[in-house]
Design a protein around this nucleic acid. Structure first.
Lengths: 202, 202, 202, 202
DNA sequence: TATGAATGAGGGTTCATTCAT
DNA sequence: CATGAATGAACCCTCATTCAT
């Protein structure tokens, strides 16, 4: 009659998943050992297998956690009280803030690499999630254009792709350079580039 | 009288390095086995060790090769006969073309991940190279501004960072989405965003 | 005042031992896990250790149980009211009936294999028990010969070995072939072979 | 251009397979470790995997080897120059001789146990092989009956089953008792039981 | 007493690297 | 120079056993 609450299980699952994220970022997915993850979580190797099927399951959970964080950031930005442009900027700000965390970036990169390789699940989920973020930003851009907050002549989807790529690329750059990317400043530059009315149309 | 010409050695080194790039992209750095690389190069496993110290050495060579390709693309762009803006666009075009190749992107990502991890050399070289590309584009931007081809009020370094990040990010997106990123179209959008004169100076 | 009756303990011990026999037969001794045995017994893993020292102890108990069943079958046969030959036939019938049960055969085979391996106890007990069954049948045969129910020229011990081997071998065959061995029919054939008077003596 | 002859490969495969048979008999299939098998074969652990897919493959090879030996013994007996009864006796003699070797018996028992468990291949092959030996002996018995060397009233298939079971059972007994079964003497007893003309037909 | 989470040693397997040929 | 068989360390995973509750 040992009482093992769901809360306890959830806590363990969360702790292991976070430990995995940390170690995956530190050593890479393949380089991470279950022992190191267990140690990081303060457990023995075998304990992990009570909560996760195996390493693959843990990888999937770590990736899913990353997507969930981003998704929540986007939902929060979308719920901003300001205008459409404000929502876009807020989404960028939150995304960039996330990407300044090397752990997050490392996992995103591993995710991207995983999507380019065999084994279906990761690739499919990554692709689907990217579709989601691109669609979401495209929608925001279109709405902003309709509200007259963004120049109407810009291609909404193209701009969304550019903005998504920028966030990813800036994270990558920050990872490589370590502290040299100023998110706020870059955001300001972007706003100026995109939101400023142009003199000519072509 | 065993005659082993330098040309022969160079050819072998090149073949192995290219095979390594292919297999690294296909399986990931850790997932790639020396045997598969050897097979890809049409050699036996042991032969690699006559030309490279070991796997780490091969990884370094593969990464260096990637940097060299990019460097040559940049030099070629810089030598364009057109104006400064033309040179920037050409650099973007060449960089983007490279990044549409998944093998290149995979290796760039592995490189970025490697830079975030232990072992010193890769991180240092990656950082130094990124510094080089950012400096180079910054110089081009400044020159273009001086030539009146770009708005003078833009921060040259910030813009360079944005452009560098964009190239990386678009490559990553293309890797994830597989064929959905149109490099030319995106380039056109960027030119419009950056090079179009603004009505107000803000 | 925690009252734990001996009956309760015996019931637990018996349940666990039977569960062990079932799982040992299903997965093999090595392949059986304490968890599966516990589940089969409707207990938790840890509970087993209150009634048995460990897996080895449980194995010994499972084997002992098998021997006990056989011993009882033999005693029952010996107590038959008919003649000596009848007792032998009854012993054969009961033994064969047991051996038509795959679980029993599996455990007997594991027992035989165990006797061929390291650990002293199992081997010794198996050997001693086989000595017992051979001696017992030998005694029955000798008695039957004395009673004129079996040809006197047959070597009693040799015949006992043959009969013991046959029971084991038929069980093994039934295990391998699954339902193709007809115990009754085989028994009839044996009776005819052994008990029929011969025309010549040599 | 290292010359690795097929003979060398065959020798290795044979050595590993024999080492596996020895260790399987000594520790049981599950209890045997690849390390111990490798050591028994005078190799390192990893070397085995160049010649066998894995442990399962090695198990299958070890079992197949056992079947092959028995098959050859049977073919040899069948080719005897004497009469049909002589062939049966020779088959029994060769089979029993094999079964006096504990290693062979251990593997046969493991094989029988394997056939009772999940995983299709072993069970199917074991069953098919037993069918083969039973059919073969049945054929010999029928031929002997036709030649007047065996009583015609005996059921050929039933007798074949009995004889097959006997060989297996005697091997098992020998394994348990260690040197107490005299194959020749038992064979003589059997011949007397089976081949002696009966006074009545029952 | 009973539970089942946790431990950690040990097994199967892979693969970077070496070296005899 | 090239080959590829061999080595052996290290990984993922399982499971007998323990122990706090």
């Amino acid at each position: 009659m040992t009482r093992v609450t769901q809360a306890h299980i959830d806590a363990r699952v969360g702790a292991i998943r976070n430990a995995a994220r940390t170690v995956f970022a530190r050593r890479g997915i393949e380089g991470a050992t279950m022992s190191e993850i267990a140690a990081e979580a303060g457990l023995s190797t075998g304990a992990i297998y009570r909560y996760f099927q195996g390493k693959d399951d843990l990888i999937a959970a770590a990736f899913a956690e990353g997507r969930e964080r981003t998704r929540q950031a986007f939902e929060k930005a979308r719920a901003t009280s300001g205008g459409m442009l404000e929502a876009i900027i807020e989404a960028g700000r939150l995304s960039l803030a996330e990407m300044m965390d090397h752990e997050t970036v490392c996992l995103d990169l591993e995710c991207a690499l995983g999507s380019a390789r065999a084994g279906g699940a990761i690739g499919e989920q990554t692709r689907a999630f990217r579709e989601y973020t691109i669609d979401l930003v495209e929608g925001l851009v279109a709405a902003a254009q309709e509200a007259g907050e963004l120049p109407p002549e810009l291609d909404a989807r193209g701009l969304s792709i550019v903005l998504n790529a920028l966030v990813l690329g800036l994270g990558l750059l920050e990872l490589e350079m370590g502290g040299r990317v100023d998110a706020e400043e870059t955001l300001a530059l972007l706003v100026r580039l995109v939101a400023t009315p142009r003199s000519g149309t072509a």
